[in-house]
């Protein structure tokens, strides 16, 4: 049975009461607006990517982040942007946008153009930025967990107080190297936060059908790594938990696991028939738990901004996305001479 209600049962650790009556850590006006804008950028960008895919401008695999926006937004808000490293799997567009990578470069990589972040040689699953400390964009499920543990190793080796934010999905949580990494991370007290984005389906297989124990936050128990489940649809809960986890890792206490209970609205990739879940399940998630709508509602209730102000933000975001799509459509493909470059340095 799919855990439809999973997101609802997440524990709220720091309990404060906001105007809207929920028990969640409160965001300031600026934080709410920042979260709204970041998540909206991801949502609109991904919708546009889906459209460009439909037009044949994006090829191959394209895994959209729609529905999961609160996870990367909340984590990044709790991190030191540009200092803490982030690494994830193939569903990576949202991470890059929220980390501040150029939307034009991301979209142009999706369309395989020379102005893409990887010069068109990586594609949807392979984009990186040394400057922003984003290490991909990794296509092999679970491989990023060992790599992210290595990023944490490097921080400790050099005596830096940066943290590695290593994301993976509920599917990757069953890969062997995840536990090899947990073991070393705890053994050597590496500053890594493992963020499990549990969107409940590994491609088409639900957690319940693939995991012997479904509370993935407890997967570090045999290594004595603390973990908690978090409502990954509520950006406030995400940031709150991430602050705890990052502080734990940064202060030398070793790894921490956050299981983000989230949901992807779209298929696993563009060519996913989505026969493994009901339409009602998707619809109820979208209408009741949407991460962006939650923020929008609070902003309006708290008078942080008016409908018109939010429309203005929508307009700005749409302009960024349109500009990215135009660039990605008109930018030339890489020169043929690029075929043999960047193989060895």
């Amino acid at each position: 049975m799919a855990r439809k209600a999973a997101a609802a049962k997440s524990p709220a650790k720091k309990e404060t009461t906001s105007k809207s009556g929920s028990n969640a850590p409160e965001f300031s006006k600026d934080e709410e607006l920042e979260a709204f804008r970041e998540m909206l950028l991801v949502r609109r960008f991904e919708e546009k990517a889906g459209q460009l895919y439909g037009m044949g401008l994006i090829g191959g695999f394209c895994h959209l982040y729609i529905g999961q926006e609160a996870v990367v937004t909340g984590i990044t808000m709790a991190s030191r942007k540009g200092e803490d490293a982030q690494i994830t799997g193939y569903r990576d567009h949202g991470h890059m946008l929220v980390m501040g990578l150029d939307p034009k470069g991301v979209m142009a990589e999706l369309t395989g153009r020379q102005g893409g972040l990887s010069k068109g040689k990586g594609g949807s699953m392979h984009m990186f930025s040394n400057e922003h400390r984003f290490y991909g964009g990794n296509g092999i499920v679970g491989a990023q967990v060992s790599l992210g543990t290595g990023l944490a190793f490097a921080a400790k080796y050099r005596g830096e107080d940066t943290v590695s934010l290593t994301y993976f999905g509920d599917g990757a949580a069953n890969q062997g190297q995840v536990y090899e990494s947990f073991n070393m991370a705890k053994l050597w007290s590496l500053p890594v936060v493992y963020v499990i984005e549990n969107n409940q389906y590994a491609m088409g297989t639900s957690v319940a059908r693939s995991a012997a124990t479904t509370d993935l936050s407890q997967r570090g128990r045999s290594f004595d790594i603390p973990g908690e489940q978090v409502d990954g649809m509520d950006v406030r809960q995400v940031r709150d938990a991430a602050e705890r986890a990052i502080e734990h890792a940064r202060s030398g206490k070793g790894p921490y696991i956050l299981e983000m209970l989230t949901y992807r609205y779209r298929g696993h990739s563009m060519s996913d028939p989505a026969k493994y879940r009901s339409k009602d399940e998707v619809t109820s998630m979208r209408s009741e738990r949407d991460p962006i709508e939650q923020v929008r509602k609070r902003i309006l209730e708290n008078d942080y901004a008016s409908e018109d102000d939010l429309k203005e933000i929508e307009k700005e975001v749409r302009a960024i996305v349109t500009e990215a799509a135009d660039f990605a459509t008109n930018d030339p493909e890489p020169e043929a001479s690029e075929l043999y470059t960047d193989i060895l340095q």
Binding site: L147, T149, G150, A154, Y157, Q177, S181, N183, M184
Partner: peptide
């Protein structure tokens, strides 16, 4: 598998 990946990440 794990320490090779950790090395590559480093």
């Amino acid at each position: 598998h794990g320490f090779a990946g950790l090395g590559v990440g480093a």
